[in-house]
Every structure is written in structure tokens, then in C-alpha cells.
């Protein structure tokens, strides 16, 4: 197996739409698909939209950008997930969408 497979290449391309997460309480369902524009567009539905909506969108956007994706549309349905869960679900969706298991495990979280 290659040594490099756990490092993230510079910019990645989404090869297929993918999703991660469930609708269970405390979780967030992330669906990711390629976007037309060079931006990360996030559409959020959340049970705590008023109180944490801005924070959740920011967390999702940051996690997608850190993964190395620039053209993406995210549809998220949140059931009160904590930030660490959101980051994990976004990373999983990104991995699945780019058919890679690359991730920078050494990054400061």
C-alpha cells in the first residue's frame, strides 16, 4: 500500500455525489455534490437553526475547504450535532465523494 494515501492532495475533484451521517438525534446528515461555482455552498436545515445556524454553516464550510474541495454544494440536515461530529461527517462525505480515504490525521483539530 502507498505511504501517501493518508495525505490530502492540493485540490480534489468530486467524482460522485455522496452522503454521510444519519437523522438520529445528535447527528447531522451531510450530502455533497459537485458545484458549478468556485465556492462551497451550504444549505442547512437544523433543529437549532436560530441559535447555532451560523456556527454550523461556518464549521461545515471550513471542514470542506480543509479537505481541499473548492466546488461543492452541501445539503445538511442537522439534529443537534456537536462541532466535532459535524467535522467528522463532512470529512466522511468528502472522502466518499472523492473516492479517497485521504485525511490529514496529524492536523491540529
Amino acid at each position: 500500500m502507498e505511504e501517501k494515501h493518508s495525505e490530502v492532495p492540493r485540490t480534489m475533484k468530486i467524482t460522485m455525489p455522496a452522503s454521510a451521517g444519519t437523522m438520529e438525534s445528535g447527528d447531522i446528515m451531510i450530502e455533497i455534490e459537485p458545484g458549478e461555482q468556485r465556492e462551497v455552498e451550504v444549505v442547512l436545515k437544523s433543529s437549532v437553526a436560530n441559535e447555532f445556524g451560523k456556527q454550523i454553516v461556518a464549521t461545515i464550510r471550513r471542514a470542506v475547504e480543509e479537505f481541499g474541495l473548492e466546488y461543492a454544494v452541501i445539503n445538511a440536515v442537522d439534529k443537534g450535532a456537536l462541532d466535532c461530529t459535524i467535522r467528522a461527517r463532512v470529512a466522511a462525505a468528502c472522502q466518499r465523494a472523492t473516492a479517497s480515504d485521504g485525511f490529514d490525521w496529524g492536523k491540529r483539530a
Binding site: A20, Q95, R96
Partner: peptide
Amino acid sequence: DAARLLVYH
């Protein structure tokens, strides 16, 4: 894959 990321985070 998803579980690994969840536990890591």
C-alpha cells in the same frame, strides 16, 4: 470510514 472519523474527532 465514517466511524473512524467520528471517533477520531
